[in-house]
Design a protein around this nucleic acid. Structure first.
Length: 462
RNA sequence: GGCUCGGUGGCAGAGUGGUGAUGCAGGGGACUGCAAAUCCCCGUACGUCGGUUCAAUUCCGGCCCGAGCCUCCA
């Protein structure tokens, strides 16, 4: 398998540190509100990677964290006058619902910051002891000059960062590039006592140290794959790398860094100031989760992806085609000894090339539509279903896909069946005008009628 | 200003130093009462200017345009 490594800027052969246990860490959400469609992209992309790895290695330990202590969480809790746990548990639940709707399998570990405070404190202690961190004015800061490799991941020169810095440098920083590992919490906000030797009192961890500590706790000093959004390369991942490497005596932190490209809304950056933030749960009201997932896999994960109405409509039509082939051969049981073809696997192994993999799926669908023997159908069905499983698609009953209705439908399935039966009667007596009238009436409700050799069937376009 | 990543046919989107993926849309045909679905066939493409090469959309360089990052951000 080849993976594009941000650290080197090129595709590299993936060689696990221990083939018996693959370790992967992906930065998850800060749970202060509902997930937007941009948040969903890394979850889906790395879900596909996890599925592929699980096929190829006996054990995959995949951790995707939850950041459940943060300024924005505090602010949300203050607005509602509740404990932060009320806020975080609400949005963790919502996150799980959204991911489930998108067919994202649970990660093996979902560590939360508030459950790893001792590990975080211990890591900070080690950084202080080794001269890579220092306490100042109730903060503990990482000393960037103590780590000469700083900036290598994001290809930034620490000295030039200062020129572009758009935030005022706090006076207690020894070096302007130093970043916070621990910061004070006032009494009214959540916090934990820090070791007396720091002289910092009550506080809470900085953002970057959380991921370093949780990755270490669950996956070890050196992990195989670290993933996240492109925007996290700097400063988040650069800082994680600095902390972990220094806390581990120079051991490599992540051997392969993977970053997904950004998602734009109608070619514009998604941001609250523009007001074009689209929540996953809003999209799910008007489109099936599976179509959302396919839309996210339509482009290569490292490319920018533009989200618009046409993108989701396109994904639905693609699924119509794939499920159509499965529906039309539903009488044949898949020959499950057959797995996804090599060309499909090769596409995914080529830096998770989902567009190329999808193209193979469409080739299979065409072959399946043309297949004449039961043997061919059984094999092609199995191959198509297996490829779909790796992408997290095509796992529902085709009939369910075609009868789906995300919006409140004005006609019930029973009513549709009744009308279809009436139309069949009309056709039988060659009353085509009546038959067409019924068909047009259903079409107006978003129900498309299709006559086939096996009888009439219908599907919803809502 | 620095650093990344892009500009492919009507749209989306892979890929490749030389026989032009894939899906949607479009044209023609088969099938159908008519449709739909399905199958067969068919256009239209690689931002721009140079360079390397027998040959470049593919490699190199300049330019133009776009997206992201530069200490909240997937």
């Amino acid at each position: 398998m080849q993976l594009h490594n941000t650290a080197t800027g090129r595709k590299e052969l993936f060689v696990p540190q221990d083939p018996q246990r693959i370790t992967m860490y992906v930065c998850g959400p800060t749970v202060y509100s509902y997930a937007h469609i941009g948040n969903a992209r890394p979850a889906v992309v790395f879900d596909v990677l996890a599925r592929l790895l699980r096929r190829q290695y006996p054990r995959v330990d995949y951790a995707r964290n939850i950041t459940d202590i943060d300024d924005k969480i505090n602010a949300a809790a203050a607005r509602e006058s509740v404990e932060i746990g009320v806020i975080t548990s609400r949005y963790v639940a919502a996150y799980h619902e959204d991911l489930a709707a998108l067919g994202v399998a649970p990660a093996d570990f979902e560590p939360r910051v508030t459950e790893h405070i001792p590990q975080i404190i211990a890591m900070i202690e080690r950084l202080i002891a080794s001269g890579h961190a220092y306490a100042a004015e109730n903060h503990v800061l990482f000393s960037v000059p103590s780590y000469p490799d700083y900036g290598q991941l994001s290809r930034r020169d620490p000295r030039e960062l200062l020129a572009g810095a758009r935030v005022e440098v706090a006076p207690y920083k020894k070096d302007p590039g130093d970043f916070v590992l621990w910061k004070p919490s006032p009494p009214e906000l959540p916090g934990w006592d820090s070791p007396p030797s720091w002289g910092c009192g009550r506080g809470r961890p900085g953002w970057h140290i959380e991921c370093s500590a949780m990755a270490e706790a669950l996956l070890g000093d050196t992990i195989d794959i670290h993933g996240g959004g492109h925007d996290l390369i700097f400063p988040h991942h650069e800082n994680e790398r600095a902390q972990s490497t220094c806390a581990h005596g120079g051991a490599v932190f992540a051997r392969y860094w993977l970053h997904n490209g950004f998602l734009t809304m109608d070619s514009e950056k998604m941001s609250k100031s523009i007001g074009n933030v689209l929540l996953v749960r809003e999209i799910l009201k008007v489109a099936p989760g599976e179509a959302v997932r396919l839309a996210l896999l339509t482009g290569h994960y490292r490319q920018p992806l533009d989200w618009n109405d046409e993108a989701i409509a396109d994904a639905r039509r693609k699924l119509d085609r794939l499920y159509g082939a499965l529906r039309d051969t539903a009488d044949v049981a898949p020959a499950t000894t057959f797995k996804a073809p090599q060309a499909f696997i090769a596409a995914l192994e080529d830096d998770i090339n989902t567009p190329a993999a999808l193209a193979e799926l469409f080739e299979l669908a065409r072959s399946l539509n043309k297949a004449e023997t039961v043997e061919d159908k059984a094999r092609l069905r199995a191959q198509l279903l297996d490829g779909g499983e790796l992408l997290g698609l095509l796992q529902q009953d085709p009939a369910a896909w075609f009868s789906h209705s995300t919006a409140a439908s004005s006609v019930s399935n029973d009513e549709i069946d009744t009308l279809v039966a009436q139309r069949a009667e009309a056709k039988k007596v060659r009353n085509f005008a009546e038959a067409d009238r019924i068909r047009d009436a259903l079409k107006a409700q978003g129900i498309l009628i299709e006559d086939s050799a096996q009888g009439t069937r219908w599907r919803s376009t809502n």
